[in-house]
Design a protein around this nucleic acid. Structure first.
Lengths: 96, 96
DNA sequence: AATATATATTTAAGAATTTAAATATGTAAA
DNA sequence: TTTACATATTTAAATTCTTAAATATATATT
């Protein structure tokens, strides 16, 4: 992966609202109405950050009636967060 | 790892100058005079971003005479970049 | 068609960040 | 102890980012 793409990922995750959004999507696809309370931000704020995450290429969306569902579309993002979630520097496997 | 610490790591890596610095340190400890050309930025800019990376807890330093050497001190940072460097969504091992 | 609900967009104000110039500090060598 | 070299700090200007209010759009229901 080249530096440009890495930078895009780190910028996507380097804001509290966006990180909350992504963390909430780690459990799977969610509609905006579920994402909002996970962030503690206003609807317009969440919507704007969702559009930034779309532009950064880390999530995708699908409409179902009135609801819009988002999910993580970038496997690298998913992998990074999964690893940090159970990261413990004292229990690393060989090679890690 | 908690959200605060993740955010610190992503903020550290979410700037082009800082990402260039960290990438150059992936090969091992380097003095400032070696880091500067790897970034394409002025000395004062690199020095300021190095101090930010110190404050964010992802690098450490040691002086040797006139030179100051920096290295990555955060194993999670090291791990993330290592994985992204050889990340290919089509050749993932089982479980990834 | 009118209304309600869910989400998106525009906008404005404030906050935070980035860069580089100027300058300061620490170390070694002459 | 003066000078040169390596790095750090302060400062200022410009840019970027973030939030939320106001408003708009899309869909479903009545």
């Amino acid at each position: 992966m080249d530096a440009k793409e890495k930078l895009r990922i780190f910028k996507a995750l380097g804001n509290e609202t966006r990180l909350f959004i992504i963390e909430s999507l780690m459990a799977g696809e969610k509609c905006v109405c579920e994402i909002i309370p996970a962030t503690g931000r206003k609807q317009c704020t969440v919507s704007l950050q969702l559009s930034k995450l779309m532009n950064l290429g880390v999530i995708s969306s699908r409409r179902e009636g009135k609801r819009v569902y988002y999910k993580i579309s970038n496997p690298a993002v998913y992998k990074i967060l999964n690893e940090l979630n159970d990261f413990n520097p004292y229990t690393l496997k060989d090679g890690d």
